[in-house]
């Protein structure tokens, strides 16, 4: 269970560029939740993810993961428990290294001086074959040769190789072409279901936000303005969402990449 208690974050405090990105935000994510997150530009969606993942420390408040206080834990330590995918498929893997080398680091097994074993290689092949992209036959090729979709799928595999307690997906299909994006979403669904992962996903695709997951969160101005789950979420339509947004935020949903269908 992820418990976020009254966190705030202000960038460039005391300067002309001061920006309150998150204001007194509290959120409890239950185990097994698959939450989709929507909101305007600058609503604080990515900032929330950065706070959870530890890209920076929050100015105030606490973050608890399974009753462990991770508020001041550095990002690489949290990475053991928190997996993350970005919009940019290039961010998740090292282009100059081979697929198996990338996976070895993600798997994180064995001592510092251990080398890739045959058993590991077979395990990699097995996992890669689940992607159905033929990557299992390209173990020794540099990741830089893969397409954006292939790289994002690989990153998804790497981030979930050791099932994390929380998986953060920050518009991870937004930079892909529609067909590839669908494929990556299918993979995401499959991996999340198989491993029973707790997952937070930012999206600008309203339909996706409604179809995926058991819970939906709407953010505006650095806080959660609408939180819906279960049957209530199932019955929502995109029109409902837009109306709810206007009611709660006081203005229309303003996202320059929003997709309604």
């Amino acid at each position: 269970m992820l418990k976020i208690e009254h966190i705030s974050k202000t960038f460039n405090p005391g300067t002309i560029n001061e920006k309150v990105a998150i204001k007194d935000l509290s959120l409890t994510v239950n185990d097994g939740d698959f939450i989709t997150i929507i909101g305007s530009n600058g609503a604080g969606k990515s900032t929330l993810f950065n706070a959870i993942a530890g890209s920076f420390f929050t100015d105030s408040g606490r973050i608890l993961l399974d009753d462990e206080d991770i508020t001041m834990q550095s990002d690489h330590k949290r990475a053991r428990k928190i997996g993350r995918l970005f919009q940019d498929p290039m961010l998740g893997s090292a282009p100059g290294m081979s697929i198996e080398e990338n996976l070895t680091l993600a798997a994180g097994r064995g001592g510092w001086l251990s080398r890739i074993t045959k058993a590991e290689r077979n395990a990699f092949k097995e996992k890669l074959s689940l992607l159905e992209m033929g990557l299992e036959d390209r173990l020794e090729q540099p990741v830089g040769l893969l397409s954006g979709g292939q790289r994002q799928a690989l990153t998804l595999l790497m981030a979930t190789y050791n099932p994390p307690k929380i998986l953060l997906l920050d518009e991870h299909t937004a930079a892909l072409d529609p067909a590839t994006a669908d494929k990556v979403i299918e993979l995401t669904k499959k991996i999340v279901e198989e491993n029973n992962l707790t997952c937070l996903m930012i999206t600008h695709n309203m339909q996706q936000a409604l179809e995926l997951g058991n819970r939906l969160i709407m953010m505006d101005n650095g806080n959660v303005i609408y939180d819906v789950s279960g049957d209530e979420k199932k019955s929502l339509t995109t029109e409902d969402l837009l109306r709810k947004f206007k009611e709660n935020a006081g203005n229309a949903l303003d996202n320059d990449r929003i997709l309604l269908s």
Partner: peptide, 24 residues
């Protein structure tokens, strides 16, 4: 080609990915 060596190479290649692998 050891895990430590791979981590060193990845640091020069994409340090964000190193962090994501829980390595400082």
């Amino acid at each position: 080609r050891t895990r430590l060596g791979l981590a060193i190479r990845a640091t020069g290649n994409n340090s964000a990915m190193v962090k994501a692998s829980s390595i400082n």
